[in-house]
């Protein structure tokens, strides 16, 4: 199932979030074992987003069943808020992503400082449903809102010697309790080759489920690179820098044997400590086979035709 055709129904059109949250609440409170009642989960809505108006269907996406909003927003790897997957939802309330600005610089003709409003108005917002495959062996289907990162890139006009793009996540001890512990080299950085960054599937995302991004999902602005393992999609970005040499990401410097620069989803190249051949789709019991490039091969395989995927993992 390649990511090609536009979705039949837009998540932002069909079920307003108040209603599906209400439904979940209803199902929970009527469930035989839900003795605690229905008030418990209201606290989880503290970081929920505001509606993003005027989004339109994007040219790419999958029609697979969406991972429920609750799972997308409570099972996250965002080490700036703690290393447990429940930590970001618990701790990201302190992020307070307003005001926000992204510095775009390096080897470009028109470097700039983009505040969030400018970014939101830069290009029409699209709904795009992508699979997200974590390097840990699980996956989700997430309806993102954003536009191709290339919309921004072409406006800043990269110079001829710009070959790579480096993304930097906010690094603020006061707002991100997790950066007090040295599990990774802060700030979190990630990188893409320029052609990967300009690929039409690479998204600059500002929302999910038709709303602004919850803090724990990388508010207010992040990238989404659907054919790479999830950690390549940097969250809460404050800087986008164009460089000549391949940047070293936080995960590469933490464990160079385990995390390479490319990190394309590949069922045939295992993580040194675990298999990547299958994945558990969140909400499903049986594992699925993992697809090369997370099912985006038709669009992206051409970029790697001359690359030894085992060597450049």
């Amino acid at each position: 199932m390649p990511i090609t055709r536009p979705p039949d129904i837009l998540p932002s059109e069909i079920t307003p979030s108040e209603i599906y949250r209400g439904r979940r609440e209803f199902m929970r409170s009527t469930g035989a074992l839900a003795l605690a009642g229905g008030l418990g989960s209201l606290a989880g809505d503290a970081t929920a987003g505001a509606k993003l108006a005027g989004t339109r269907p994007g040219p790419y996406g999958t029609s697979e069943e969406l991972t429920p909003y609750k799972d997308v927003t409570t099972y996250n790897n965002f080490y700036e808020f703690g290393t447990d997957k429940a930590d970001p939802a618990r701790n990201a309330g302190s992020l307070n992503p307003h005001p926000w600005a992204v510095q775009v610089d390096g080897l470009v003709k028109r470097p700039g400082h983009y505040d969030l409003d400018a970014l939101l108005k830069l290009a029409p917002l699209e709904d795009r449903i992508y699979r997200m495959r974590c390097v840990e062996g699980w996956s989700m289907v997430i309806p993102w809102v954003g536009y191709p990162l290339d919309e921004l890139i072409r406006r800043v006009e990269p110079l001829g010697n710009a070959k790579y793009v480096e993304f930097t996540t906010l690094n603020d001890r006061a707002r991100m309790p997790g950066v007090r512990s040295p599990v990774l080299d802060w700030p979190y950085t990630e990188g893409l080759r320029l052609d990967e960054a300009r690929h039409p599937l690479t998204l600059l995302a500002v929302g999910l489920y038709g709303e602004t991004l919850p803090n724990q999902n990388g508010a207010p602005v992040r990238v989404v690179v659907p054919w790479k393992y999830g950690f390549k999609s940097a969250k809460s970005i404050v800087r986008i820098r164009f460089v000549e040499k391949q940047p070293e990401s936080s995960w590469m410097s933490a464990a160079p044997r385990e995390y390479g620069f490319y990190s394309n989803v590949n069922p045939d190249v295992d993580h040194p400590r675990w298999s990547q051949s299958r994945e558990r789709r969140i909400g499903e019991f049986f594992k699925r086979k993992t697809l090369l490039y997370n099912g985006c091969g038709e669009q992206v395989a051409g970029m790697y035709s001359n690359l030894d995927l085992r060597k450049y993992f």
Binding site: R28, G31, L33, A34, L35, T67, K70, D71, T74, Y75, K85, A86, W138, R280, I282, G283, F285
Partner: peptide
């Protein structure tokens, strides 16, 4: 077991 039956083990209950 209670967590599993009452959907309180999070998004990935098997893990």
């Amino acid at each position: 077991v209670y967590g599993l039956l009452s959907d309180a083990l999070g998004a990935n209950p098997i893990e």
